[in-house]
Design a protein around this nucleic acid. Structure first.
Lengths: 254, 254
DNA sequence: GAGTGGTCTAGACCACAGT
DNA sequence: CTGTGGTCTAGACCACTCA
């Protein structure tokens, strides 16, 4: 752009590096192409490897690079739009809602979830685990918390604790009237178990979507879904397949 | 190599540190309290400062710490819920929609925005700048892109290029029928100008909300809003004031 | 095995806020 | 000024992938 002022405030090296590499990605690389390794790149730009890594980290945060230990750094494809709109959705598990691979256990939910469910402090709930796959990639891992009071028919059930139990809980949920739901998105870092299922390192940035399901004037269930922040763009509405770039920065049409 | 077969996956030091400090935040600190400085903390835990910083960075990413150069590291308050629901919303600038401090210019939008607006490659649009303030804190900076074709009455206007022009553009927008809108959320890093207005450093993690406004079968306007990821939880629905914690981890009720 | 990214160290200097 | 977090260096070793 035209009006870059003289550097009254010298920008950090890694910031400049990020810009330079970002432009190079647009002009000289194609999606999936692997970059030179970090030591070579650092030497090429005359900086320490840690500084180079700081630039790569930001580019990865913006979804422009993908780094895999033991493999290398590749140019990431544009983020995929993942629909998380709340309209006309029903209980989880209904129809085919893009989630797979259920599991179930009984566990004490995090305090924040217990607060939303208005359960007792250390009361166990059914805790289902699901995985969302899109375009062949795992994009989100979810925990579904259902207090026993929401599925009274299941109370005295013995114990197929795995997928069968999960299906049973969902089946019972469907029988309730869903009054509405409620969603929130915030930034988080992947827990170890989520990271494993998402094929990321623990601590990777994720978008945490908290959903509350209302029935009969109370919160009947809560889900915590953690989406890979590097590969996902969450869409609310009908724009799932439109390409949107990062934060106003340009991206080549490829 | 017969050492501890357990610990088949030794967790990194910074990960362990993050957990330890996170628990300490819950039990031994109150919101707003300042932590010992990084050099002291590093010495106390017997690690290099860089390692300690890696842990603090993650905690800041999760919204649990706030670090300010020249001041220190403080315990952050819970994230505030910021309503970004699309239902029953109208054009930007209508009623009082929590946005302030308008400005306007003509500029070439980023390629991704031009694509959504279906404008020519280097066609200028009206480019409004707004700031969203919540609880006395700036939480988001926004760019609103309006192609001249969406506000034809303004075509030959000369040039109050500042706030007056901004109001004029918004006034013209209100006259269009709003067919619907469309929202997407993704992770980004703050541009230098946004960072300045949000009182953050360039590159800070932000949640980028892209909104398309439809009118007469086409995209009449587009906004790019960058929300501070450290302090904000975006809510879709009517749960703006409910406290939700980070990604299933516990947070004390304070 | 060689090569990659991930972690960690022990320093140094800089930019900024509050005296 | 002092003290803080932010940046940067030049190494080292580890964990992982793949041929």
């Amino acid at each position: 752009m035209g009006t870059t002022q003289l550097e009254s405030v010298p920008e950090p090296k890694y910031w400049h590096l990020k810009m330079v590499i970002g432009e190079a990605l647009d002009s000289d690389f194609t999606v999936g192409e692997i970059l030179p390794n970090e030591r070579d790149l650092a030497a090429r730009f005359g900086v320490a490897r840690a500084t180079l890594r700081q630039a790569l980290e930001q580019l990865e945060l913006e979804g422009r690079l993908q780094r895999r230990r033991g493999v290398g750094t590749t140019v990431a494809p544009p983020r995929m739009g993942v629909d998380v709109s709340t309209t006309q959705h029903a209980w989880p598990g209904s129809a085919q809602d893009a989630w797979q691979s259920f599991d179930c256990a009984r566990a004490v939910p995090p305090a924040a979830v217990a607060r939303m469910l208005a359960t007792a402090e250390h009361e166990e709930t059914y805790t289902l685990r699901r995985l969302r796959v899109s375009h062949g990639q795992p994009v989100a891992a979810e925990q579904l918390f259902v207090p026993a009071s929401s599925v009274p028919e299941l109370s005295a059930i013995d114990a197929p604790s795995g997928a069968a139990r999960a299906r049973a809980v969902l089946r019972e949920l469907q029988r309730l009237d869903l009054d509405g739901q409620d969603r929130a998105v915030e930034l988080g870092s992947a827990r170890a178990d989520d990271a494993r299922e998402l094929d990321r390192l623990p601590g990777s940035p994720v978008l945490v979507v908290t959903t509350r399901y209302f029935s009969q004037g109370r919160t009947a269930a809560v889900t915590l879904a953690t989406y890979r922040a590097d590969t996902c763009r969450l869409t609310f509405g009908d724009s799932g397949d439109v390409q949107i770039s990062h934060h106003g920065e340009e991206r080549r049409a490829s």
